[in-house]
Design a protein around this nucleic acid. Structure first.
Length: 256
DNA sequence: ATGCCTCAGCTCCTGAGA
């Protein structure tokens, strides 16, 4: 069974690529971020014809997340209970015997900015909620666009990006605190190619030069760790003529 | 270099992304 996450940077633009990808990669669950689309415009019919149930939590212009699944999702929750937020960033559900959380973490823009403070508060809110979720449903997957690198191996230019957004000690502290709840970075459970990234800047031939960051992650809980068999970043969609700046990340696990 | 590219929108520029 495979699960995947993909920041599509506008589902309006990327819908054909998502459908094409699903045809080649018929994953059990796919969570999407940055739909930049209201629920009324969400392409339920197209996904239904592709064999997927869809739950969406849209927003105009910015953010917006969705959860696609082969089997119906239940207990759907939008955003973080207990954390007041006017942005559509999180969607979670029970599906395939798991609790699946798809999330679009705040960017943060710049350390010291209001948006950075919001990112820190959001991360604390997420952690407090995920701690409770893990008690309720120990088989849990938290995946999405984290907008945080774990360490310098996730950064194409660790010297130039030192203390810059996505690479600060504060952000990495929060990512570590999520791990400390009993989660594991599925990607690093396996040997991976050097300089593996999930995002490349559109500017300056970022993808061609592999100037990227690994900021899209799949964290799996202690209870699921023995089931995980594979985790890859699929760079194929980045080679499209009009690609998202992010690539999908895919995890494979034995049916728990 | 307060830039580069891409997307959305009260669209011919601006804000945001990362």
């Amino acid at each position: 069974m495979k699960l995947a996450t993909w920041n599509v940077n506008s589902l309006t633009v990327r819908l054909p690529q998502v459908l094409e990808w699903l045809a080649v990669n018929p994953v059990e669950v796919l969570v999407l971020q940055e739909l930049k689309m209201v629920d009324d415009k969400f392409p339920f019919d197209a996904f239904r014809q592709a064999g997927y149930h869809a739950q969406c939590f849209g927003q105009k212009t910015y953010n917006g997340v969705a959860l696609l699944s082969r089997t119906p999702a239940t207990e759907v929750v939008k955003n973080i209970p207990g954390f007041s937020d006017d942005m559509a960033r999180v969607i979670s559900a029970n599906v395939a015997g798991l609790r699946v959380i798809g999330a679009y973490f705040p960017n943060g823009q710049e350390p010291g900015s209001d948006k950075f403070d919001y990112k820190m508060n959001w991360l604390k809110g997420l952690r407090d909620w995920v701690r409770e979720e893990l008690v309720k449903t120990p088989k849990l997957v938290l995946m999405g666009d984290y907008n945080i690198t774990f360490d310098d191996t996730d950064v194409w230019d660790p010297v130039g990006m030192k203390d810059q957004i996505h690479c600060t000690d504060e952000e990495r502290y929060h990512l570590g605190a999520l791990i400390a709840l009993g989660l594991h970075d599925a990607f690093r459970l396996f040997e991976q190619p050097e300089k593996s990234y999930s995002w490349w800047d559109y500017r300056d031939f970022g993808f061609r030069r592999n100037h990227g960051l690994r900021i899209d992650h799949i964290l799996i809980s202690d209870a699921l760790k023995p089931c995980v068999t594979h985790c890859v970043i699929d760079k194929a969609p980045r080679k499209n003529e009009r690609p998202s700046d992010h690539a999908p990340v895919v995890v494979e696990l034995l049916q728990p």
